[in-house]
């Protein structure tokens, strides 16, 4: 599904290299987790994959279902099925949540040459999916993320994911700022979307999220590289001992 080969990237303004050769392959139907200390490049990886301005790719390749995505605009990557759940979802005053989601769904459909969804059809689907995420009608009507609590913003991200039905989902610290109940709700939303044809890359600091979203593989990222890969037990090891042992091991 997602094939990252020797990906190198730096900040465009500062000429500071952050990703120093990331190798990672996520197969369809799998959930991979990335953990790592602060500043290891986890969020940068998610931004580079989704095409945010301000980063310069200096080497390597990224393929989604065999297609090189690095030359694509962010909206083209989205239409190809890439989705990033933001660590800090953006508030957009003046743009209604519903209008935003319908515009996004139909823009992607149009880009893929599919029929657009009618307003009534969309409304039906979004209401049903919002309900399972405990997102009420008021949140759908309000401007995008404006006045939402931390938990509501993250649930809104998952709702967008449910509506867009991407192939490859990247969750950037979706657990940050969530209490236990909110995390469970978000995790349930993600689990409901697990599917043979869909893959997840879950970026997190804490093992707790992985109790709810069970990963197939866990990668440890440090200083712009994946330095260790293992099963779910690797996350437990980090939880208990921190990163020091692992860092010492590979050094």
């Amino acid at each position: 599904m997602l094939e990252i080969k020797d990906l190198k990237a730096s900040l465009a303004d500062e000429d500071k290299q952050i990703l120093k050769g990331v190798n990672l392959t996520v197969e369809a139907g799998k959930v991979h987790a990335i953990m790592g200390p602060n500043g290891s490049g986890k969020s940068t990886l998610s931004y580079v994959l989704s095409g945010k301005d301000g980063y310069e790719v200096t080497g390597g390749s990224v393929a989604l279902d065999g297609k090189d995505i690095l030359e694509m605009e962010p909206e083209e990557r989205a239409a190809e099925g890439l989705f990033l759940a933001f660590q800090y979802p953006i508030e957009i005053p003046g743009v209604g949540n519903m209008v935003f989601m319908r515009t996004a769904v139909n823009a992607q459909r149009k880009a893929r040459g599919e029929d657009e969804m009618s307003a009534t059809e969309f409304l039906k689907v979004v209401r049903a999916r919002a309900k399972t995420l405990k997102i009420d009608a008021d949140m759908l009507k309000r401007p995008v993320n404006v006045g939402f609590s931390g938990g509501e913003k993250k649930r809104n991200e998952i709702l967008q994911m449910a509506m867009l039905e991407p192939k490859m989902c990247i969750l950037d610290e979706t657990d940050s700022g969530l209490d236990v109940d909110a995390m469970k709700l978000v995790a349930e939303g993600v689990n409901a979307l697990r599917d043979e044809g869909r893959a997840f890359l879950v970026i997190t600091h804490y093992q707790r999220l992985l109790d709810h979203i069970k990963p197939d593989l866990v990668h440890i990222m440090a200083d712009g590289r994946i330095i260790k890969t293992g099963g779910p037990e690797l996350a437990l090891e980090v939880e208990q001992n921190g990163y020091a042992d692992i860092l010492a091991e590979v050094a």
Partner: peptide, 30 residues
Amino acid sequence: IDEDALFYLRARGIPVDVATDLLTLAFLAE
């Protein structure tokens, strides 16, 4: 235009010109 908002919309698949118009209308809404 708020670059973060623009990227957020584009990351959801909304083409840059449509996203710019959405943010333009949002600006005029008041």
